[in-house]
Amino acid sequence: MSAITDKPTRINQLDALESESIFIIREVVAECKKVALLFSGGKDSAVLLKLAEKAFYPTPLPLTLLHIDTGHNYPEALSFRDKRAAECGAELVVRSVEDSIAQGRVQLASEDASRNAAQSVTLVDAISELGFDALLGGARRDEEKARAKERVFSHRDAFGSWNPKAQRPEPWTLYNARLKPNENVRVFPISNWTEIDIWHYIARENLELPPLYYTHKREVVRRGHQLWPVTHLTPPRPGDRIETLSVRYRTVGDMSCTCPVESIADNPEAIIAETLATSISERGATRMDDATDEASMELRKREGYF
């Protein structure tokens, strides 16, 4: 540990967010029996994991890392996931949508259809198999309309369903994590962070991320205001013009439904500058499935989505 530093009593917004998140993470671990942190290797879950490490320092992380692998993840994200899991010393459990498909628990419209919705089934199965009563997730309220009303402690029934009307009020910071058997609570410690806060934190803490988040050359096709990556899951359509551009990902999700943005930013500060200058939202720029359906997130959440 470095030299003792004096800290002013007034703390700035990023410190306040950090302390709020640590408070929430500690509440979950204190009130619940078996806690998992959903870790995909994406930037929000990387921030969440860092906050969890800080929350319990200098003692070991009292939680399990859980990843629901859609089988459509970028290999760079998976190797980062494994590396970070090994570093932090917590157990990493991976459950895959492929297995759910093989078991007939999930039926996809087609082989390369988006597995975003399908992962709800695998997630709910993993929760009951492993007996988790609390799951920490990196969702933020600024991402999407249905998230703006999400509680920090989001109560789910045994089927993982979210019922907007049955959510518990959260005055002050008095979270109610009491559960009946087989129920679970999804907890969002970074609810109040925005995309720009995440990048400020990554810069300040010098957090490592998968290289996909920084500029790299990639073959893409322009569709509307989005750039669709050329992958085996999203092959070019007849007549498409393939371009090789300098791009980066703003979110690293399922390969079949996440788009990169044009960028030459190769470090967090450059990304902050770009994010402040851009006027398009994170989801708008990057998610193939959301542009079409305003209510799609709300629907997925009712079905047990995170």
């Binding site: 470095s2 003792i4 530093t5 004096d6 800290k7 002013p8 009593t9 703390i11 302390s19």
Partner: peptide
């Protein structure tokens, strides 16, 4: 006193901290 950024000599609201005391007394959640 441990603040999120490391050991400090003083911390104030609303910091999340870990406090070590000189003597072990009965303290719980």
């Amino acid at each position: 006193v441990y603040a999120p950024g490391g050991e400090v000599s003083r911390a104030g609201a609303p910091s999340s901290i870990t406090l070590e005391l000189e003597t072990q007394i009965d303290i719980s959640r």
